[in-house]
């Protein structure tokens, strides 16, 4: 092999090595962004510089400064403190939502897909009907019935996402069920539930992790959107959506009120999206391009 030979051959599509920043936009960057958000959420539980809820009328509409990194709002509250406290609310709600959706979806979808029969068809009918409410619609409807509250948001979003998880798990179970190692388990006389929980479901985790990550982002965004509409976590609780909603009246004079909460949401989502892409390339390349959004 000579160097000459390597350079001489015209390449079909002018393929070159990946540019450096493409190699960099990968799991590491995503994980770093995500880590910032998660640390923020933890900080929200432990310590924030100023009280995020108590008004201080002496300090209304202060522009960002060293004392107030992101300025203060119309009630004189420190925006940075509220952002950190908002991270806590957003991450908590998003995690709880994903936990609810994934556990309901996995158990029902797993049983339904593995055993089939009329129960499966009934479950699928209900799932299809629930999926007929696009995006936020079902969550909005549930919030309308339940009234704004943190638990309400978790239940509403959990219920909206569970059908998607269910459908994914059921589909994966249907394909894993046909694999020969599952038949091998039946051939040595393993009971059906043992086969399902020991052989089938553990082999469904890759797409589930990928989807769970995407759902985490969706839930975070959806919670902000619900709060923005005044149908999520009720004010004065600091959430990013509430802050954006409250900024609407004043953001002409105090644009930082709108900029920072939006940036917080965007950074969180960017982290999740980049991290999620890297994860799905590693775990389940077939799911590439399927974005789960509210």
């Amino acid at each position: 092999m000579t160097l000459e030979a390597e350079t001489r051959i015209p390449d079909r599509r002018g393929r070159q090595r990946r540019p450096w920043f493409l190699r960099q936009i990968n799991g590491t960057v995503g994980a770093a962004l995500l880590a910032i958000v998660l640390i923020g959420a933890l900080m929200g539980y432990i310590w924030v510089p100023y009280d995020p809820v108590e008004p201080n009328f002496l300090k209304r509409f202060e522009a960002p400064s060293l004392a107030h990194l992101m300025g203060t709002d119309q009630w004189g509250r420190d925006v940075f403190s509220r952002i950190v406290a908002g991270a806590r609310a957003s991450v908590t709600v998003a995690l709880a939502t994903v936990a609810l959706a994934v556990s309901v979806g996995t158990i029902v979808g797993g049983l339904s897909g593995y055993f089939g029969g009329w129960a499966d068809r009934l479950v699928m009918l209900l799932t299809d009907a629930l999926l007929a409410f696009p995006g936020l619609l079902l969550a909005l409807a549930v919030m309308a019935v339940a009234g704004p509250s943190q638990l309400g948001v978790i239940v509403a979003l959990g219920l909206s996402y569970a059908p998607s998880v269910l459908r994914l798990v059921r589909g994966t179970v249907l394909s894993v069920r046909e694999r020969e190692f599952v038949e091998a388990s039946r051939a040595v006389g393993d009971p059906a539930l043992y086969t399902l929980f020991r052989h089938v479901l553990p082999n469904c985790t890759a797409p589930l992790i990928v989807m769970g990550t995407a759902l985490f982002g969706s839930a975070l965004l959806a919670e902000s959107a619900l709060s923005f509409l005044g149908l999520g976590i009720p004010p004065p609780a600091p959430t990013w959506g509430n802050m954006l909603a409250e900024s609407r009246g004043d953001f002409v004079t105090a644009p930082w009120l709108a900029i920072f909460p939006g940036l917080a949401i965007s950074i969180a989502l960017l982290g999740i999206n980049i991290f999620g892409d890297a994860l799905r390339d590693r775990l389940d390349p077939r799911m590439r391009g399927l974005d789960v959004r509210p």
């Binding site: 070159q16 990946r18 540019p19 493409l22 980049i274």
Partner: peptide, 27 residues
Amino acid sequence: QDTLTDAAIIGVSILFLSLPSFWLGLM
């Protein structure tokens, strides 16, 4: 795939994907 063009398109897509529409609207 794996060229600058690809990187630019992926980068811009993932950025827009991460902007909440209500914030983008306000901005």
